[in-house]
Simulated assay, not measured.
Amino acid sequence: MTVESEKRTRFFRLWTVITDAQGVFRAMRSVQYVAFYLTFSYLLQTILLLLQGETQYTSPPANSEQLYFELGLYSGISVLSLWLGVRIRNGKYGAVPYVAGWMLVEIVFSIVTAPWYGGVGAVIFGVIAVSGLRGWFSRKKYGVASLARKRSWLLIGCGTVFGSALLALCAFGLLIEVGVFPDLKVVSGENLSSYHIQTLLDRGILDESDSIEYFYSYGLFSVADGGQFLTPTKLVIYEEIEGVLSVYELPYSKIDSVELVTQGGFLEDSLYLIYGNSRSEWEYVAMFLGVENGGDQTFIDRLNKHIADYKAI
Rank of each mutant, 00 (worst) to 15 (best):
Q32D: 08
A122N: 15
T2Q: 07
I313K: 07
W282Q: 08
V17K: 12
R8W: 08
K305T: 15
Y238N: 05
V244R: 13
P60A: 10
I274A: 01
S257G: 01
I128R: 07
S81P: 01
R149S: 15
Y272F: 15
K185E: 07
T262C: 04
I212V: 11
L260D: 03
E70P: 00
R203M: 10
S188C: 02
R134P: 04
F299Y: 12
G119K: 01
Y42M: 09
S5D: 08
I77N: 13
T298W: 10
G264F: 11
R151T: 14
S131D: 01
F36C: 06
D207N: 12
V86D: 03
D301P: 10
Q66F: 04
I47S: 06
G163N: 03
V24A: 02
L250V: 11
G295K: 09
R89A: 15
L104W: 02
G101N: 05
P232A: 11
S253G: 09
G135F: 00
N191V: 04
I128P: 14
V291C: 14
T55L: 03
G264V: 02
S59M: 11
F162G: 05
L104V: 02
L192E: 11
V96H: 10
V17F: 08
E268D: 15
F162K: 00
S280K: 05
V161H: 02
S59Y: 15
F40G: 11
E239Q: 14
E70L: 08
D20N: 13
G276F: 10
A224Q: 05
Q56S: 12
L73Q: 03
P115F: 00
I107T: 03
G135I: 01
